[in-house]
Design a binder for these strands. Structure first.
Lengths: 189, 189
DNA sequence: CCCAACTCTTGATAAATGTCAAGAGTTTAA
DNA sequence: TTAAACTCTTGACATTTATCAAGAGTTGGG
């Protein structure tokens, strides 16, 4: 599994950093089942997860227990509750495996150490932070400026893999609509 | 105006950095009128703005021309379209002064130079990026998991200054509802 | 200081989306 | 392999929110 991570780092930096051996030992393999929870509200998020295989759903629940998905992460991506992680404060979110997963996780202390000691690691973190922020900004703008049908079309164009891979219920929870509305509107396209 | 920025930097770093004189000369004062646009969709965002006095609205428009506000920024905050700025690509957003403003702006080239040369500047940027990302994550979660009334209450508790300062129309555009709905629901609290 | 332009509120109505229910199809885990 | 648990779709209906309109109040730039 570490080869996947090595490849990911190489791709991001353009070359294999010579200090890669400082980085890899800090990662621990985790094998999960479908439905496993990696984080629950109130819990302090101790890890950042790199996805070798599988899919993670980051979500919250409302007063009625309905789930709203903030983001899905798949192969070659990183998932965590960044703010809770960086500040080591209780999270408001769940992280769940939507399918059996092969993950590599790095603990808070290791992460901070690498970020301070290995400039390439800090650089990758900054890259990911900027892209994540941008994605979330985009998401706010789609949620406030598009109706349900437009958001569905947006997702089909911009997240076709996610759209094809996950159940309607999960997709609907990402789009901020009910599963029934998703079914009905899809037939109008 | 530069004193305000100096104070801001001191507050964030805990002390006045000794290389502050490397930083300040890169900032240029901008005085605006109510309604002035600092950025329009399609334009490449060349500056980051520090608000000494006033309020900036970052928003998009939908197919009908309705405005959706992504964020309001007030005194002692920074505003820009970070992704468009960092990648120097055309923006999708507007930035507008909701009132006459006193701003300090820093140009893209200067910003990159300082981020590379002055570690404290890079640190503040990282801080702001993390907090901005967190705010936006929170915003996605409120937009998808709360109804209009809950979002209004959330805003009254979490953004009371913004709520008191801006018109209903602007508040509504931030909450993702019409101004009429805001009026009606406010009377139910 | 004044008036045109904006703002807030309220009503009537329309449109979008949610909720509940039920049946057929599909998947999963023992 | 099979039963139980999900999933998808559709219908009927309820609820939320938007839209359009109009009048009273407020404001800010000349």
């Amino acid at each position: 599994m570490l080869e996947t991570l090595t490849q990911h780092i190489t791709n991001r930096l353009g070359k294999l950093p010579d200090n890669i051996d400082l980085v890899l030992p800090h990662f621990e393999a985790v094998i999960t089942k479908r439905g496993d929870l990696l984080l629950q509200p109130g819990e302090v998020c101790k890890h950042v997860y790199f996805i070798v295989e599988g899919c993670l759903q980051v979500f919250v629940t409302d007063k009625n227990g309905n789930e709203s998905t903030r983001e899905f992460y798949i192969e070659d991506q990183w998932a965590t509750d960044i703010f809770g992680f960086q500040n080591q404060i209780p999270s408001a979110e769940y992280i769940r495996c939507t399918e059996p997963c092969k993950l590599l996780r790095i603990h808070y202390e290791s992460f901070q150490k690498l970020a301070n000691v290995v400039p390439q690691f800090a650089a990758i973190y900054k890259q990911i932070l900027e892209v994540s922020y941008n994605n979330t900004v985009y998401r706010v703008n789609t949620l406030t400026s598009m109706d349900a049908l437009e958001r569905i079309k947006w997702m089909m164009e911009n997240k076709p893999k996610i759209m094809a891979r996950l159940s309607s219920k999960l997709i609907a929870s990402y789009l901020g609509i009910s599963a029934e509305t998703l079914t009905r509107l899809k037939s109008k396209i």
